[in-house]
């Protein structure tokens, strides 16, 4: 490995390690709440209400909502990790530690995104384990499930990064998750198939990126989806490319960081 390559890999691993230590240190605020929330979803929507509902696409309701709930944990936690960590670094001025160091902007971004992916995956795995207490976990295609999970974590980590760059207060880092992410998640087919919606609402749902994520992941676990898998991958990858380019532009310009 060239000396630059070695320097950059050490810098990247330092950011990643720092990010993992951060969410591990405050696990009671980061990893534990999704366990409680999803256990309640499984208990109330899956067991209590779900047992009264007809199967969807041949699966019991509790089995049908497992993929959506796992993805909900992945996307909210990867987003939440980067937005709170990067905004904290801005607020405490310790983002300057990285800005003055010989680290390319792309590497800073990748370090934070990797941290977000790590938390997203940890929460995704924990939610899967919790789900296993309530129902059997199906696995139709491991590679689809794994790749969608990772791509989703990347996409929402980038979203969290952009939110953090523009945030000027701690209120600003909770606005998007509360008023945008949560409604999109609930309307993104986590709890239902869009086939059950009237025509116009099916069309409107197609503008919701979370719909593609949930359905692609549902295909990975159950082998059923409302969306064609290749379209879902294309949409996710397109979002990642656009968000990555925009994040890098913000970092290079120093928006919200440099004067």
């Amino acid at each position: 490995m060239s000396s630059h390559g070695q320097t950059y890999s050490i810098a990247f691993l330092t950011i990643l390690r720092k990010e993992i230590r951060r969410f591990a240190r405050i696990w009671i605020q980061t990893v534990f709440p999704p366990v409680i929330t999803t256990a309640l979803y499984f208990l109330i929507f899956g067991k209590m209400i779900g047992s009264q509902l007809a199967p969807i696409d041949g699966y019991a309701y509790i089995d049908y909502i497992v993929p959506g709930l796992i993805m909900m944990g992945v996307l909210t936690n990867s987003y939440g990790n980067v937005v709170s960590s990067f905004y904290g670094a801005k607020f405490g001025h310790y983002v300057e530690e990285m800005m003055i160091a010989p680290i390319p902007h792309s590497l800073i971004l990748l370090g934070y995104v990797a941290g977000g992916v790590a938390r997203g995956l940890v929460v995704g795995i924990i939610v899967t384990v919790v789900a296993a207490f309530f129902t059997d976990i199906h696995l139709h295609n491991l590679w689809v499930a794994l790749s969608v999970m990772i791509l989703t974590a990347i996409m929402f980590s980038l979203g969290g990064f952009i939110n953090a760059v523009y945030a000027n207060s701690f209120d600003d880092i909770s606005i998007i998750p509360t008023f945008v992410l949560t409604p999109l998640t609930y309307l993104g087919g986590v709890f239902y198939s869009i086939q059950l919606l009237p025509g116009i609402w099916q069309d409107i749902s197609m503008f919701n990126p979370i719909l593609y994520i949930v359905n692609a992941f549902r295909y990975g676990l159950l082998g059923v989806s409302d969306i064609d898998l290749s379209i879902a991958y294309s949409i996710i990858i397109l979002f990642i490319a656009v968000l990555y380019g925009f994040s890098l532009y913000l970092l290079k310009k120093g928006i919200g960081i440099r004067t």
């Binding site: 070695q6 320097t7 050490i10 810098a11 691993l13 950011i15 010989p102």
Partner: peptide, 17 residues
């Protein structure tokens, strides 16, 4: 401020490779 003293210094070393 929420990192141990040693970690603050070692992280900076990492940023410089």
């Amino acid at each position: 401020q929420f990192e141990p003293v040693e970690e603050v210094v070692l992280n900076q070393a990492g940023y410089y490779g």
